[in-house]
Amino acid sequence: MYGRYMTLPESPLGAELRVTGVRLPAADAFRLNEMGIRLGTIAHVTQHAAFGGRVIAVAGSRYALDGRTAALIDVEPVASR
């Protein structure tokens, strides 16, 4: 269904990324979906935080994700398509 290029914590700061996979438990993935982070969503990593946490920008909003959650979100660089 998707190619796993890298996870969010592996992504460089500021890079334009496309969400290609969410490997969270179904209910958590559903809430992420409801909050606007879905397959195909374009995101930018705006901040690397402690313990692998990441802040991403999606359509003007900033989302903070803990390290474990960020590691379960797969992304691909938009430029590589």
């Binding site: 930018h44 901040q47 920008a57």
Partner: peptide
């Protein structure tokens, strides 16, 4: 799909959410 530009909040977060300075 707006382009990404760093906001004022992003710049403040560079300090307040920094892995070393945040805590």
């Amino acid at each position: 799909r707006p382009g990404h530009r760093r906001t004022f909040s992003d710049r403040v977060d560079r300090v307040l959410l920094n892995p070393w300075a945040g805590i």
